[in-house]
Nucleic acid binder design. Structure first.
Lengths: 323, 323
DNA sequence: ATGAAAGCGCTAACAG
DNA sequence: CTGTTAGCGCTTTCAT
């Protein structure tokens, strides 16, 4: 900037004024400065600008589990979109479900003085963020609640969705429903299992452990679990799958066996309408969830000081697959 | 940092030394500093640290077309992964195929002094980046070549892949092959069309404009184009689709018509193995492409000064779908 | 082994 | 309208 000032024969402050489109600069000078800027290939150092306290970095941070997963990349896309509307850039990082790493990344983002944080939490304890929050960095949690920290949170109605899904199967006369889930160590899974249990209980059906497969982490695992259950003495007449990766594995295994056992799966997914059998998904609007969270965050960044809110978004049953 | 120094009763420089794990600090003092850091909730300002010239920001920038698209989110995920191995964070932004916006974002990233740039270019002219490149910001282009700028580039063998795809159909006896593409304004589409034409030409088959559908931007458009071609006087006996969104639309329309016309499509996609008919994809390794580009970028960041390279990655034909 | 002082590139506050 | 000066929070000399 000093170079530009010298080149244009003005003071550094005038350059600053021109760069920032401040009023009260003679046209003539401004043009000279702009010319020098172009000639010298000057680009303002945004970091230095930010250093003066009270300035914003025009950057927000997003922590998700896995950027390659469509659910999370949708969230990232919406976050980037909303950020852009606020002339802000987005730093995205994946925690890979590792609380340790999540904390590390969060600290790193804070040391970069991001204007705000959007978090799909992997860990259970976010108390370590309290100093940052108190120092004025807004934080919004997404898809899962925070631990040990009061903050805005946007969740899905996992419990209600699971209840509706199981109820649909019960209404179609099913009594033996196989339930497949990833891991109860994940909040959303716990909620969904809870909802399923509630629906069974209120229909007066006992929760049969043999009809529950835990630790199903991928489609292959789901296929194996389905095969196991279907060859057991009293096989289920329907499956309730607790996420879309599992649903895909279930459908694949059913197709392989030419079985037409009914399926309800939590989460919609791309191409679900082209799957080889009719089934039902518990759907929701991922973009809306992300948008709600991002909007909340920017409201906070803009100075909103109200008490932290928790928003719960609805789910809906939708028919999918080729009939 | 001044506060910490005062609290610990040492100089600011000692705090700096402790924070940076520099040697030559008494255990005792170091512990006192660490205690103060914890108590005051101090977090080093990474931006200020970076301000001293010669320091790196430990941040790279990635420009893609659309973060919500699995192809790009895979690239972003790999970029973030490689970045993490270098203790670097990733700023991701979508250009939405808008050269204007791409340029704006790139300038913005440069003003944040990123250590390097990974670009899937939307525009045709990247000469405006030359000053930055000369000032030492490495740039690697991905999936499409740069315009007006010599830089490392990682591409796919679009031409060869398309040739192989069309050749496969010709070998199965097809003479009338319907070709569906998005827009020749996109580099990859031009290359793929070129490859298809070459394969037809070397088989002595004239390129029939009526068998080519341009401007197919989504599955619905693809379905409509397929419907149109199949009800024309001399319908094609096979389709070659130039991207996976189009392929999905083609498959859906064929299923609707209970037609078993053969299909070859460029790009593999998730769940392609569960599509309702056999078909062939021109597949490639997106992760490898992204990894190659990111590795190249970090080599440059580490000081590699060799002449810019262009790497072209191979494609392979793979059978997909339920038989 | 520790500290004092200068300076990174910019903006805020105040003069002229 | 324009310029001077003092910092922002940290690291890098260079003394001690």
């Amino acid at each position: 900037m000093v170079d530009v000032a010298r080149h244009a024969g003005v003071s550094i402050k005038t350059v600053s004024r021109v760069i920032n489109n401040e009023p009260n600069v003679q046209r003539q000078l401004a043009e000279r400065v702009l010319a020098s800027v172009a000639e010298l290939g000057f680009r303002r150092n945004h970091l230095a600008r930010t250093l003066r306290s009270g300035q914003s970095t025009a950057t927000i941070g997003l922590i998700i589990e896995d950027l390659a997963n469509p659910f999370y990349s949708t969230i990232a896309a919406v976050a980037a979109e909303v950020a852009r509307q606020h002339e802000t850039l987005l730093i995205t990082a994946s925690s890979e479900e590792d609380p340790q790493r999540e904390q590390q990344l969060l600290r790193d983002l804070c040391s970069r003085r991001v204007d705000g944080l959007l978090i799909v939490p992997a860990g259970y304890d976010h108390a370590f963020l309290r100093p940052e929050v108190e120092m004025g960095t807004p934080v919004v949690f997404l898809d899962r609640p925070a631990g040990g920290l009061l903050a805005d949170t946007v969740l899905l109605d996992n419990r209600g969705g699971a209840q509706a899904g199981v109820r649909a199967l019960l209404e179609r006369g099913h009594q033996r429903i196989g339930i497949l889930l990833d891991s109860v160590s994940v909040y959303t899974m716990r909620e969904r299992v809870g909802g399923a249990q509630e629906a069974l209980a209120s229909a007066g059906i006992a929760y049969d452990e043999r009809l529950v497969a835990d630790g199903v982490h991928d489609p292959e695992g789901a296929a194996a679990a389905v095969a196991r259950m279907l060859t057991a003495p009293t096989p289920p007449t329907a499956f309730f799958s607790l996420n879309n990766r599992i649903t895909v594995g279930v459908l694949q295994e059913l197709w392989r066996r030419k079985s037409r056992v009914e399926v309800v799966g939590f989460d919609d997914f791309e191409l679900s309408h082209l799957m080889p059998q009719r089934f039902t998904v518990v759907a929701y609007d991922t973009r809306q969830m992300a948008r709600t969270a991002a909007d909340l965050l920017f409201q906070r960044i803009a100075g909103e000081r109200s008490w932290p809110r928790t928003v719960t978004l609805p789910t809906a049953l939708v028919e999918r697959g080729l009939s």
